[in-house]
Write a protein that binds this DNA or RNA. Sequence first.
DNA 1: GATGATTTGTACGTATGTATA
DNA 2: ATATACATACGTACAAATCAT
Lengths: 244, 244
Amino acid sequence: MTSHLRNSGSHIALSPRVEPKLTLADELRIRLADDIVRGFLPLGATLDESQTARRFQVSRTPVREAFRELAASGLVDAKPHRSTLVARPDSERLNAMFETMAELEAVCAGLAAQRMTVAERQSLQEIHEQLRVLSFAGNPEQFHEINEQFHNAIYIGTHNNYLGELTIATRKRVQPFRRAQFRNLGRLHKSQAEHHHVVEAILREDRAAASAAMHAHIDLVHNEYESYAGSTLEGEMAGRLRTG
Amino acid sequence: MTSHLRNSGSHIALSPRVEPKLTLADELRIRLADDIVRGFLPLGATLDESQTARRFQVSRTPVREAFRELAASGLVDAKPHRSTLVARPDSERLNAMFETMAELEAVCAGLAAQRMTVAERQSLQEIHEQLRVLSFAGNPEQFHEINEQFHNAIYIGTHNNYLGELTIATRKRVQPFRRAQFRNLGRLHKSQAEHHHVVEAILREDRAAASAAMHAHIDLVHNEYESYAGSTLEGEMAGRLRTG
DNA sequence: GATGATTTGTACGTATGTATA
DNA sequence: ATATACATACGTACAAATCAT
């Protein structure tokens, strides 16, 4: 992954509208957010402005602006006159984020059950079927990808874009703690079974059941993380890196 | 309200730790967010960087950073190479925000019913009583102030800080559309009655009832806005200012 | 549609505050 | 505790894009 953002001399501008003309700050924000949620940047890591600027061959100005936006979205922690750090929520806050995600996803599933169009319901079923196949193929990366599509399909089905955005933002903030989930092959099939209850309820247009099934699903994701983090003691260890 | 942020020469630094040393960008963000939610800055207004910089006697750099953060929080709309505008959601998005607020507030009330400490329940009752008195005194500004305290008390009662932050953020984004609410004196008493159902359910530790009562309350706030906006045709008119 | 005026985006230098020896 | 080193905060100059004519 060579990281040169600076595209010296735009080449091959065949079709117009290919580039929405993003600013460097925007590209940096997207790139850094991706690095954080993918776990490429470790939690609690120091994000040096000059260093980051050199890394991407830009000045510090767009880097600063990207950091500020990431701070506003909660992915990094920035205090005045102090270096920006990749956010590392303590266990209380992490629990709060998981719980909130469960509530948000539950509301989404409930609304989707009431509002999805025929086409949207069919699309959801197709994605669900893809996941079933993948749960046997056992490719964690691919399963994760389609799993996101599954949840996105439900957000769209709510016909409430704002709610979808809030939910996605929360998902992103929790993602670093869900990453290892699908390493466990057994988890793929369990996830599949949980999804099945959600899909079934949505197709029945049963709001309460869809909501409850999704809530249960996210709670299990949370539990899965806790048992993983607890077993590896990663949470404890990470917690003592700076505070101890 | 003279607007000089520049405090030339810090004076009287008696006790240490009085000033958390906010940056200019932070102060600007807070100030501008306040101006927006209070309706001081009209929806859709253009926020010129240089102009704003001159207004506060600072350079464009902190202004830009403040704009970026406001954009991340959704209060302003910023596209690359275009002036930043005070966000003016269309009716579909506004409905989505109201609906989401109702769901979030409902979840908060439900969790609070289960989790509030004795002290927190008592505090909630006291605030509720203050509102009852104010609903007769009929001071809209003061009622609004204590009303925010009422809802904040519930967020605290959830013991889920993240959820509280999301809910507050959503409340802020909708606030410009709730401003005129309490001009209507009758609304104060209706609001009071709705709150009563919420408080009662919370004190009974009845999660479902608290959640439902709060949901109904916010829905009525939404309806109140719609009938107001509809009657003044403000929504329609504003909608045609730029798009037409 | 081209050109000038205006506004935003980026780079960089200096000031200021923080952390370390 | 003072001084030094270092990172961030801010101002200014210039480049690039948009808007108005």
